[in-house]
Simulated scan of single mutants.
Amino acid sequence: MQQVQGVVARKKGAPVEIVTINVPDPGPGEAVVKVQSCGVCHTDLHYRDGGINDDFPFLLGHEAAGIVESVGPDVRGLAPGDFVVLNWRAVCGQCRACTRGDLHYCFATHNAKQKMTLDDGTELSAALGIGSLAEKTLVAAGQCTKVDPAARPAAVGLLGCGVMAGIGAAIHTGGITRGRSIAVIGCGGVGVAAIAGAALAGASPIIAVDIDAKKLAKAKELGATHTVDSSKTDPVEEIKRICAQVYEGADGADVVIEAVGRPETWKQAFYARDLAGTVVLVGVPTPDMKVPDLPLIDVFGRGGALKSSWYGDCLPSRDFPMLVDLYRQGRLDLDAFVTEEIALTDVEAAFDTMHRGDALRSVVIF
């Protein structure tokens, strides 16, 4: 067992604390990873504020890259010294989703069986089964995805959650391709990643919608062909207008991604898509939010698909190495998502920065 420093949320809404964490030696199927970088994600804030569940105390963090320090018995394909991006979809290979070939929907993903604890022995709930806002963390070996060790940890670690969620929402869930149009409502980290994914796929037009000029500028930098300030313009009508200019007869975008997680913006996405178009919800709502009041005839009459995107419907073993290779080739600017590099002691301040919308990602560097 080792003792390290980590960021813990002890109770709902209380400021996080830097405390001593006990990290067990890895058991069968487990690995200890020395964390090099970890993004501060909105999901961590959800955990701190009780928006996920009440299993306090939480060891926060899940967007991380690092070096495997040790592995437990029966671990194959992973060894000390490997550079990895951590993921929260370590497929089981045995559940209904896996046996029908849909590994990206695995219903029983693996986590470490042992618990990390506080110094007094209190068991910690690791955020998304990872808990990587700590100098070292214990995970299931399947949560470690090996990638090119020459890559910058702060950039590629973000594939562990937000960036992969956005890129996958566009490419995997939305099925965006050349010759199709896309609009993204909400241009935080996930939304801008969806725009980057759409640009990789060759979509056009790529329409970014937000109320923040700085976020729209970043969206433009990462591939948006058009921007819409929805505080000044009706986004539904503007999306329809832009798409009709490009494709005669279009009545909206082929794919509309909702990256906010609110009923009112989801309703905008519903009406901003073309006939037989696709709506993708990747923004995370709170439990009290309800689907907006929609006439059922509109659901039927517009056709198409209403989808939710879980982790960008990704398969980490397939997608992480590919996206890191694109990053290394200069075709995917993951560095653009790193707004600031901070210390472990700055996590609470990073939540304030997040509230203000001043950063795509604050990344802790160890």
Rank of each mutant, 00 (worst) to 15 (best):
V71F: 10
T227Q: 03
D254V: 03
G121R: 15
A14P: 12
G189Y: 08
S231P: 00
D44T: 04
V236R: 14
A217M: 02
V71N: 12
K215W: 01
T225D: 09
L216R: 11
G61V: 00
D54S: 15
E348I: 05
K220E: 02
E30G: 09
R302N: 13
E30V: 09
D49L: 14
A90E: 04
T345V: 12
K307C: 14
A244P: 04
A244H: 04
V284G: 02
F320M: 03
L138T: 09
L281S: 05
G39D: 11
I297C: 02
T145A: 01
V192P: 03
G157P: 02
D251R: 15
V324W: 05
A126S: 11
L78N: 08
P205T: 07
V246L: 00
A165R: 03
S132P: 11
L332Y: 09
A213S: 15
K214A: 11
E135F: 10
E258R: 14
E221K: 15
V347F: 07
G168P: 05
Q3M: 09
G357S: 03
G304P: 07
I242H: 13
M322A: 14
A199Q: 10
C92Q: 07
P292S: 00
G131N: 08
A154I: 00
L124M: 08
V291K: 08
V260M: 14
G179E: 02
I342F: 05
A343Q: 13
P57M: 00
R100Q: 15
P28G: 04
H226L: 00
L306P: 08
A349S: 07
P295R: 11
V16Y: 01
G304L: 06
A65I: 04
V279S: 10
V7E: 02
A244Y: 01
A150N: 08
E258D: 15
T109A: 14
I182M: 11
I18T: 11
